[in-house]
Amino acid sequence: MRRSKVQIGNVNYDYGNVFQGWGHVMRNLREYRFFIQQLLRIYLLAPFKKSLIGAMWLFIFPLLTVIIWIFLHGAGIVDPGETGVPYPVFVLLGTTIWSLFINIYKSSSQIIVDSGSLLVMNKFPYETLIVGRLLENIITFSIPLVINIVVLLFFGIKFTWLSLLFPLTLIPILLFGLTIGLFVALLRVVAVDLCNVVDEGMKVLMYLTPIVYAPKIKIGWLTHIIDYNPLTYLVGLPRDILAQGEIYEPTKYLICTAVVFIACPLMIRFYLYTKPRVLERLINN
């Protein structure tokens, strides 16, 4: 019988049992909350430590994105279809919500490879890295969101009481990105070919999701893909709630949300359970 309970920091580990239940996960997060704060400091501040304008880049990047799309639209290069709101508003909100999804996907899918040497030389609860990345993405998302609200007001968008639901409607897309990201994080160590396919797929997925064009667009096979793409609803509903005060396809959105709410905890559990064994296969540079 294996009895390998040991205390590291303030946390008791059982070396034989790699997933010890959600209660244990929550306890670890509470005990390591100062570490999560430190991770957040590193994630948010380190990329800009060597920059003169520092965290201002967090504002500049989303502004540039908006300007590029407005330019493309003004030049007649893209035909977005019937968007219901001014195109800059439509594309700004769409790309911002998409960026929440793709950024959480990128950061969580790199979580093992990026922290490889850290993980094979230090013992701390893996869940701290997940929470650190989630918080980082929520904070970095809140900055373009402020720009969005300014642009929306500028274009005369009137907010309704439904707009208050906007932050809550983003939770499913955030968890969807995390779920896929954690799965790819494991693949990135043991099945690199497969994770390359998913990475490339993500680039294509942006064009198969109504972000810079309206979901009602009718282009043959693309119409079917848009219908079956869960991101159509996970992006569309929050965008319409904020920009138009309308609920876009509530039933399909709720179905997608239910699936994400079941899949995400299962994926986190699988990730925490599998990661120690995947980690020992990690070849560090």
Binding site: R2, Y15, P276
Partner: peptide
């Protein structure tokens, strides 16, 4: 505790 124990006590 960095690597999991799969065989042994």
């Amino acid at each position: 505790g960095i690597y999991p124990i799969q065989k042994g006590d």
